[in-house]
Every structure is written in C-alpha cells, then in structure tokens.
Simulated scan of single mutants.
Amino acid sequence: MRVSARTDYALRAVSELAAAPPGPVPAERIAAAQNIPRRFLDNILLQLRRAGLIHSLRGPEGGYWLARPPEEITLADVVLVVEGKPEYQERGGYPGVAKPLAEVWTALREHEERLLAEITFAQIVER
C-alpha cells in the first residue's frame, strides 16, 4: 500500500486532534506539532471538515476539533476522505503457475482495508 503525503498528513493531523484536550486546536499548533506545511494542512483540514470528521471555529479563540469521539473515527475514515474509494485495477489473469498471485493481491488488499477499519484514533493516541 502506498500512502500519499496528503494522507499521511491527514492521519497525523487527526491524531493531534484526538490527543488534544477538549476545545478548538489552532491549525498553527497542529502544523508545528506534526511538522506539516501550513498551506497544505489548511486544505486537508477543509477537506476533513467538509466530510464531517472535524468541526471548526473561526477567530482568535478558534481552531479545529473532532466531530466524533476518537474511538469512533478509524484510520479508514480519514483515508477514504483524502484518497476516495480505492479503484483497484484488476490485472489480467496470470498464466500458468503464477495464477494464484491474483488471489494473493486480493487478500492483501482486503487485509489492508480491514486493518485500517479496525484501528481507531483513540488507539493511536493511547500508544
């Protein structure tokens, strides 16, 4: 599985929000804590807000916070928002002795999806 920088930053930003005390967290603080370029982070936070994973408040006391408790948000939730539904390119059938490889790739993809759907941000911040 390849993880884009955008997805990595989104996962790190949500982790930061999951670990924060209640209340808005300024984008500057998220960017500094996770070493994420601010302009890149702003776009990611907007995408996460539009998807309903986080809320925001403007102004000097503003910032971002999770829309649901961290135990209800999985890594898969964030990956789906940032990357969209994965489109898997079916490879042409493998000939001869390599034919079982198609099953291996399918099992690997299913395992990745299952693992991301099982891990919550509460578990991430507990570690």
Rank of each mutant, 00 (worst) to 15 (best):
Y94A: 00
G92P: 01
W105P: 00
Y88N: 04
L108V: 14
A107H: 01
Y88E: 08
G96K: 05
L116W: 05
K99H: 10
V104C: 07
R109T: 08
E103V: 09
T106S: 12
G96R: 06
R114H: 11
E103P: 00
E110M: 10
A107V: 07
A98C: 12
R109M: 06
G92L: 14
R109H: 00
E112L: 12
R114Y: 10
G96T: 06
Q89D: 12
E103Q: 12
A107T: 09
E110F: 03
E110P: 08
E112H: 15
E90V: 02
L108Q: 14
E110W: 01
L116K: 04
E87S: 14
A98P: 04
L115S: 08
L101F: 13
G93R: 00
K99Q: 15
R114I: 09
K99R: 15
L116M: 08
G92F: 05
L108K: 11
L101C: 11
P100F: 08
Y88S: 01
V97C: 08
R91S: 08
A107W: 04
E87K: 13
L108M: 10
E118Y: 05
E113P: 06
Q89C: 10
A98H: 14
R114V: 03
L101Y: 15
E103W: 06
R91A: 01
I119C: 07
E90Y: 03
E113I: 02
G92D: 12
R109S: 05
E103S: 14
V104T: 03
E112Q: 11
V97H: 09
R109F: 02
L101N: 12
G92N: 13
R109W: 00
R109L: 06
